[in-house]
Design a protein around this nucleic acid. Structure first.
Length: 292
DNA sequence: CTTTGTTTAGCCTCGT
DNA sequence: ACGAGGCTAAACAAAG
């Protein structure tokens, strides 16, 4: 029977993998990125099961963050104190749980070995080379995944990720690096950059160029987001666009109309409510609700 | 020091 | 059986 006031899986282990839990936390956040400690917090707040054995599962979770290419690191800006980077979802990771299971993904979002090698030298150069080429000024970020869609499998070119990690590994704000490299930073590129790295690559001239969601008017899970992403002066930080562009969608996927930048946060809250109803039934939640 | 992040290894479950 | 994906342990480095 439903326990009034109870809001989660009690002490039962939730039917989610660490990947889905982490993705849930990230997607739920206003900026679509969270520091590690906030990912912990998210999970512990909602799933009492994870309030114990923290050493164990947090180690596993960190392992997942590092090991899985679907998670990317985004360095803090200088005005944001704290330890560690922000974690976000790779824009091209698509729907990892299309099969409806949050315990087991359809397939891993993995990079090619060649792409690993390709960026050893100067990731930044690779990045701009490829992306200036692939992404055109007006082009929707969505177009990015087009060349990933080969049904054949994961062999699609996915240069972004390694470069991503390379860029992030540099620890420098994207715009700084660009400047250092002498890049002119054209508006269209900055727009793209700001879409993909709303946190890192924010350029003043493009602040108003992307759809903006008000961060404070939506607090899924009843979680207070206020103050989380504001600087010392209480000014709101640049508001991002949802990281996930257009995932590879099968025909007739219900998600089709829901994924544009105009869709604010997904109904993760709804999802959880549903999960409560389904609790104990073993029925997984609808995947479309997790990462849209 | 603690926290964060990376990496390797082994075992498990699941689907084919 | 096999492979892919998930979980845990652990060693280790780096950063705050």
């Amino acid at each position: 029977m439903p326990r009034p006031g109870k809001n989660s899986y009690s002490d039962q282990k939730p039917p989610y993998s660490y990947i889905s839990l982490t993705a849930m936390a990230i997607q739920n956040s206003v900026e679509k990125m969270l520091p590690l400690s906030d990912i912990y917090k998210f999970i512990m707040d909602r799933f009492p099961y994870y309030r114990e054995n923290t050493q164990r599962w947090q180690n596993s979770l960190r392992h997942n963050l590092s090991f899985n290419d679907c998670f990317i690191k985004i360095p803090r800006r200088p005005d944001q104190p704290g330890k560690g980077s922000f974690w976000a979802l790779h824009p091209d990771c698509g729907d990892m749980f299309e099969n409806g299971s949050f315990l087991r993904r359809r397939k891993r979002f993995k990079l090619l070995r060649a792409e690993h090698m390709a960026c050893k030298g100067s990731p930044m150069m690779h990045y701009f080379h490829h992306h200036h080429h692939h992404h055109h000024p007006g082009a929707k970020l969505a177009a990015a995944s087009a060349h990933h869609e080969h049904p054949a499998g994961p062999t699609s070119t996915n240069i972004i990720n390694r470069d991503y990690k390379g860029v992030m590994a540099s620890g420098l704000p994207l715009t700084s690096v660009m400047h250092h490299l002498g890049y002119p930073v054209p508006p269209q590129l900055s727009s793209m950059v700001n879409s993909m790295w709303p946190h890192v690559g924010m350029l003043p001239e493009s602040m108003g160029s992307v759809p903006v969601h008000t961060p404070t008017d939506y607090a899924p899970f009843g979680m207070s987001m206020k103050g989380l992403y504001q600087n010392a002066n209480g000014q709101a930080l640049p508001v991002p666009v949802p990281i996930k562009p257009t995932p590879s969608l099968g025909p007739g996927t219900a998600l089709t109309g829901l994924q544009s930048g105009s869709t604010p946060l997904c109904s993760a809250a709804l999802m959880l409510e549903k999960s409560e109803m389904l609790e104990g039934k073993g029925a997984p939640l609808h995947p479309a609700l997790l990462l849209s």
